Computed example of a mutant assay.
Amino acid sequence: MVLIRESRQSDNHALAQLMGELGYPTSAESMRKRMKAIELNPMNGTFIAEMDNLIVGMIGLRLNNNYEYDDSVVQVVSLVTRADYRGMGIGGALILHAEEWAQARGANAMTLTSGIKPERAAAHEFYKSKGYDINGYRFSKKL
């Protein structure tokens, strides 16, 4: 059974490992700094998935207000499940928890971005299976 809970500072080592699996290698110390800043913003939520007392996944969320319309939206900023635990319903449990968190905060939509690399194809199919549609492009620029 998967347990979803809020993250704690003691999770930073496991979060750093999960970021590495997502393709963003980092240290526990860097993760500690990031999480300290993230936790200061009440519009953010970070949730951990545990199985058998082991951290096996995480989801990071941000509640956003819009210029274009009145409703709020929650963005999935990060979502990752340990590779050896994929296909066990952990990602689905995290998404469901995120959607409930969003609704509790008055949001009526969820968004996320995902790279277009071939290794992201399985993630794209996962998102589609959860009812998410592809509806645009994301542009970015390093400053």
Rank of each mutant, 00 (worst) to 15 (best):
L61H: 05
P25A: 08
Y69P: 00
L54G: 02
R82M: 11
N64R: 12
S30T: 14
D11P: 07
T26H: 07
M58I: 14
V77E: 13
N65I: 02
G23P: 09
D70E: 15
R62E: 12
L61I: 05
G89P: 08
I38N: 02
A16L: 13
N12A: 06
D11Y: 05
I48M: 07
I55P: 03
G45H: 05
H13I: 12
G60H: 15
L18H: 06
K33D: 14
T81F: 07
V73E: 13
L40E: 15
E50F: 05
L15R: 03
Q17I: 11
E21S: 00
R82F: 03
S72Y: 08
G57Y: 08
L54S: 10
R34P: 12
S78F: 11
G45K: 05
A49N: 00
E29T: 10
M19W: 15
M58Q: 15
L18R: 04
V77F: 00
T81I: 10
L40T: 13
V74Q: 06
L40C: 08
A14D: 14
V80N: 00
G89Q: 04
Y24M: 08
V77I: 10
S72I: 05
V56L: 04
L79R: 00
E29I: 09
V77A: 11
N65V: 03
G87S: 01
D84F: 01
V77H: 01
P42Y: 09
D71S: 04
N12M: 10
G23M: 08
G89A: 07
T81K: 00
S72A: 13
N64P: 03
D71E: 11
M43P: 07
H13R: 09
E29R: 02
V77L: 14
L79I: 15
L40D: 13
A28E: 15
D70G: 14
S27H: 03
E68S: 08
T46G: 01
P25M: 03
S78V: 15
Q17W: 13
Y24T: 08
D84L: 06
A37F: 00
G87H: 02
Y67A: 13
M88P: 07
M58N: 09
G20A: 15
R86M: 06
I38D: 00
Q17K: 10
G89N: 07
Y69S: 11
E39N: 15
Y24A: 10
Y85C: 14
P25I: 01
F47L: 02
Y69I: 05
E50N: 04
M35W: 10
P25W: 05
N12L: 08
E50P: 05
R62W: 09
I48D: 02
S78C: 13
